[in-house]
C-alpha cells in the first residue's frame, strides 16, 4: 500500500477517534464517518497499486484489483444506512432531552456512588 494512502487512512482514523471521544452525538456520528472512510481506504489500498479500471474492454491492460473495490462499495453503502439510522437516533434524542449529548448511565453512577461512600 502506498505510504500516502496509509497516512491518509491513519489521519482519518485519528481525526475520527478524536471526535468520537466526545459527548455530542453529532460529533460522534461525524467521527464514525471519518473512521469508516479511513477503513475504506485501508481496504482499497490492500488491493495493491492502481492500474486500469476493472472494466473489461478487450484491451488486455492490467486492471486494478476489483475485489477490494467491491468490498469497499458494500462497506460504503452499509455505512450510509447506519449513519442515517444514527442521525435518526440523534434526532429522537434531541426530541426527548433537548440535547444530543450522550449522558452517563444512571444505574452505574448509583453504584459508583455506593462504592465511593457518597449518597445519591
Amino acid at each position: 500500500m502506498s505510504v500516502v494512502l496509509a497516512v491518509t487512512a491513519g489521519a482519518l482514523v485519528a481525526a475520527g477517534t478524536y471526535l468520537l471521544l466526545q459527548r455530542l452525538l453529532t460529533r460522534i456520528v461525524i467521527g464514525l464517518g471519518l473512521i469508516a472512510h479511513g477503513a475504506n481506504l485501508v481496504l482499497l489500498g490492500s488491493g495493491g497499486p492502481p492500474a486500469a479500471p476493472p472494466v473489461i474492454d478487450g484491451s488486455g491492460a492490467p486492471i486494478s484489483d476489483p475485489l477490494p473495490q467491491a468490498l469497499v462499495l458494500t462497506a460504503i453503502v452499509i455505512t450510509f444506512g447506519v449513519t442515517a439510522f444514527l442521525l435518526a437516533l440523534a434526532y429522537r434524542s434531541y426530541l426527548l432531552t433537548s440535547s444530543d449529548g450522550v449522558e452517563d448511565d444512571v444505574e452505574d453512577r448509583r453504584i459508583a456512588g455506593f462504592a465511593g461512600g457518597g449518597s445519591t
Binding site: A84, L87, Y91
Partner: peptide, 16 residues
Amino acid sequence: VVVGLVSTVLLQLGDP
C-alpha cells in the same frame, strides 16, 4: 431497496 431507504430518510427526517 436503496430507493426505499432514501425515501424513508426523506419522509421521516426531512423537515421534522
